Amino acid sequence: MLHSVLAYINSHLDENISLDELAKVTGYSPYHLHRKLKEELQEPIGGFIVRQRMQTAAYLLCLTELPVSEIGLLVGYENDSAFSRAFKSTMGATPKAFRKQQDVHSKDLQQAQYVSLKCEVVRLPEQQAIVFPSIGNYFSRDIYKVWDKVKSFIESENLTPADFIFMGVLHDCQNVNPQSLCRYDAAIICKKDTKLNVNKNFITTLPGGKFAKYRFCCPVTEYANIGGLINSHLQHEAHQKHAYGISYFRFQTLPTHDTADNLFIEWFIPIN
């Protein structure tokens, strides 16, 4: 029972989590669940949820470059001031001050993770992109080696990562397993209206369409577990069918082989 409650809480931190919702997960009545959780956790469930939100926020503050306000939203706070007060009360420093001390905290947070099982159905337009093709294992950090070529290309054009949108293009996302070698493209979309020195064979149109969007952040070694969790939610909770077609990982920053762990990713899964 406790495991299912903790799993639900940690995958819904960006939502309002009520005792009634937790009761549905466990099959207990809200009254009996409240008593049982207090016995197990040695604290009220409300206080435990706040602590989980703040510990996850600490992970995102130290190991990503996400704005503080966005991190607040990811752990369930729409108001910046309320998030800052709650964080300082739990962690002893404001979010901005805590981030400045990330060298002190980062080592303890390396194996943490974030996943949101809030399924958002979106439509993506077709987009023209420069692609750097590769083949590899989606569950290995070696798949990110192709992004080192992207980094070199951007530098050769005298541009910066801030001038681009970064998309990992997963061509073989359905029925993949940890041993599969699959096609993977690093795709970049330039935000500037500027002429780039690139072979036209590497310019393509990324297909648009209807997608389910999920968000996660974790070490690469957890991709298989997170992927299974999200695909299960897509089918059984969101009642959507994973369609054949390209999936996308949209990154907040330029990924590289050295920085592959703990990237914040928006995963766009094609659906019918």
Rank of each mutant, 00 (worst) to 15 (best):
S84H: 00
A112C: 10
R99Y: 03
F98L: 04
D103G: 13
A86M: 02
D108R: 11
Q101C: 09
D103S: 12
V121M: 04
L60T: 10
T160A: 13
H105I: 02
Q110E: 15
F139E: 11
G72W: 01
M91Q: 10
D142G: 01
S116G: 08
L66I: 12
S156K: 11
T64C: 04
V150W: 07
A86S: 15
S106T: 07
S106D: 06
T90K: 03
E120R: 02
A129E: 11
F139N: 13
Q55N: 15
D142S: 12
S156N: 09
K118I: 00
P161H: 10
L117I: 04
E126D: 14
Q102M: 10
K107I: 07
Q113I: 01
R141A: 13
A93Y: 14
V146C: 10
A129Q: 07
V104P: 00
V121R: 06
L73D: 04
A82M: 08
D108K: 11
D103T: 06
P161M: 07
I143C: 09
E157C: 14
I135H: 14
L66F: 06
K145I: 04
Y144W: 08
A93P: 01
D163H: 14
S81P: 00
G136E: 08
A162I: 03
I154T: 09
N79C: 05
K151A: 14
P133G: 08
Q113R: 12
I135M: 13
N158V: 01
S106N: 07
G76V: 03
F98K: 02
I154E: 10
E126K: 08
M91H: 01
Y77H: 05
L61A: 08
V150A: 13
V121C: 02
G136I: 04
Q102Y: 10
I143L: 10
W147T: 07
G72Q: 02
